[in-house]
């Protein structure tokens, strides 16, 4: 019997090495990789997200949990591939042109990865043309655009327009976030989704593949 709950708790506490070892052990004992992913990692990360929303844990605790999850995912990946389990889709993530604030973006990236979506991190200060090129290159399903400042959130609009101009708007879902961004702004610029925190962003991204 795999110790899913124990693994989930190790993830929530950010015990990366212990978690990776236990994942390795579970695989060696014949536990299907997909079950480990869904019953411990996704569940654990979801619990962290919920506690974050309730101000029971804070950014450092979320970051170490996400790091533990990533380490465990690295252990799982070969087994997942071997058993034919593919990522449910591909998301691109970046901060938009002019914006160098990346902690929110990094947090969202790790949380989305925890839902089984492959995430390509384009980094910071990404011009619309860079994002358009990356959508084509990676055959992306979702684009996540982060902006921390009122002065840079307008680049989210510019990026959506560039995606439209490239004829890719129907192909990708665009998610926007960042401190100054609101649902009203997201609606105004034609984004598919706005979320106010990393945990909600991960839930929303996963829901696109439901």
């Amino acid at each position: 019997m795999a110790r899913f709950e124990e693994m989930s708790l190790l993830l929530q506490k950010g015990k990366a090495k212990d978690l990776a070892a236990m994942v390795q052990e579970a695989l060696a004992n014949g536990t299907p990789a997909k079950d480990i992913l869904n019953e411990s990692l996704v569940v654990g990360m979801g619990a962290v997200g919920e506690r974050f929303k309730k101000n029971e844990v804070f950014v450092p605790e979320v970051l170490i949990a996400a790091r533990a999850m990533n380490m465990a995912l690295n252990v799982l990946k070969p087994a997942l591939a071997e058993s034919g389990v593919e990522p449910v889709g591909t998301a691109l993530i970046c901060t938009v042109k002019g914006d160098l604030h990346d902690i929110g973006k990094n947090l969202v990236k790790m949380m989305i990865e925890g839902t089984g979506i492959r995430v390509i991190d384009l980094g910071v200060d990404c011009a619309p043309e860079t994002i358009v090129a990356a959508i084509k290159e990676h055959n992306a399903d979702i684009v996540c655009l982060s902006a921390l400042l009122t002065t840079t959130m307008i680049s989210q609009k510019d990026t959506i327009e560039a995606i439209k101009a490239a004829g890719l708007r129907d192909k990708v879902k665009v998610m926007v976030g960042g401190a100054p961004v609101t649902q009203a702004f997201a609606d105004e610029i034609g984004a598919d989704a706005y979320t106010s925190d990393a945990a909600s962003a991960a839930e929303r991204a996963r829901a696109f593949f439901a």
Partner: peptide, 12 residues
């Protein structure tokens, strides 16, 4: 350190 690294350091 950048904010994320400082967060990690607070924990590690």
């Amino acid at each position: 350190l950048n904010p994320a690294n400082l967060c990690f350091e607070l924990m590690d």
